[in-house]
Simulated assay, not measured.
Amino acid sequence: MMITLNLKEFITMTNKQPYPVNFSHIGLSVPDIHKAVDFYANVMGWYTIMEPATVKEDDSAIGVMSTEVFGAGWGSYNIAHMTTGDGIGIELFEFSNNAAPDNNFKFWETSIFHYGVQDPDIEGLVERIKAHGGKQRMPIKEYYPGEKPFKMVYMEDPFGNLVEIYTHSYDLTYSAGAY
């Protein structure tokens, strides 16, 4: 007796995905949408695919969706969309009641605490970020000293978001094995 399953039945039965889900975008909250678009365009080289716009708490599709996400009383926010050279989206939000966190690096709390980028000219990117108001949180380090030329560093963009910079791709950096 032969048993035949279609793909949907197979996925349901095994409860596994047959492929890795792609990363689409990340949303970043910033205190000034125009300064953020300028920084990410001029320092990171990202493309603006939707100029800053204002979303209001109303009965428009985006207004209703935002209320479903944020709850009632959010008022309005500014939003812009950018994309990296490899097509990852960056969704920027400027909320009207924006407040700087008391500590932007609560690594012990569950959340997304940084975003990672790749640039073979790590020193150049570090200097550009610092020149535009960002901070360097640590010295540039080699991942595998004496073995491979892989380097990394943690920075803060001018808005307090943590940025991890690699010289090589994520898969090359970590497929080398344990630390």
Rank of each mutant, 00 (worst) to 15 (best):
G177V: 04
W74M: 03
I90W: 09
M2N: 08
P31A: 07
D171A: 13
P149F: 11
P20K: 15
P158K: 09
K35N: 01
V163K: 12
S24I: 12
L92E: 00
K8V: 11
K151D: 00
Y174D: 06
M2H: 09
N6Q: 11
G27S: 11
Y166C: 07
F95H: 07
W46V: 03
G27C: 13
M82W: 05
Y179M: 06
V163G: 06
H168E: 07
K35H: 02
R137C: 02
S66F: 13
S76E: 12
G63E: 10
M13G: 04
L92N: 00
G89I: 05
G27M: 12
F105H: 07
G124A: 07
F107S: 07
K141H: 05
W46C: 04
S175E: 06
K151H: 03
P145I: 08
I26E: 06
G63V: 08
H25V: 02
T110I: 07
M13P: 02
G133C: 04
G75H: 06
G124Y: 11
L125C: 01
V126R: 15
K135I: 01
Y77A: 01
E68N: 15
L162C: 04
E9Y: 09
A99H: 14
V126A: 13
S169L: 10
G116Y: 10
V126I: 09
V55Q: 00
K141R: 05
G73T: 13
F159E: 02
T4A: 15
S169H: 11
Y144T: 05
M13Q: 08
D32M: 00
I49D: 01
N42L: 05
A131G: 03
P139I: 15
V21L: 15
D121F: 15
I140L: 09
M2V: 06
V21Q: 10
W46E: 02
H114M: 14
V55G: 00
G45R: 08
I49A: 01
Q118S: 01
N42S: 09
H168A: 08
K151L: 02
G134E: 02
I88T: 03
G134S: 03
F150Y: 15
K151P: 01
I90N: 05
V64R: 09
Y19C: 05
K35R: 10
E142M: 14
F105M: 08
I140G: 03
L92H: 00
G45F: 09
S76I: 12
A36G: 00
P120Y: 13
P18R: 04
H168N: 10
A178C: 14
V126P: 11
A100V: 07
G73R: 12
Y47R: 03
D119V: 10
K130I: 14
N161D: 13
T4R: 15
V21C: 08
M155Q: 13
I3F: 15
H25Y: 05
I112L: 02
G63C: 10
T167E: 10
S66N: 11
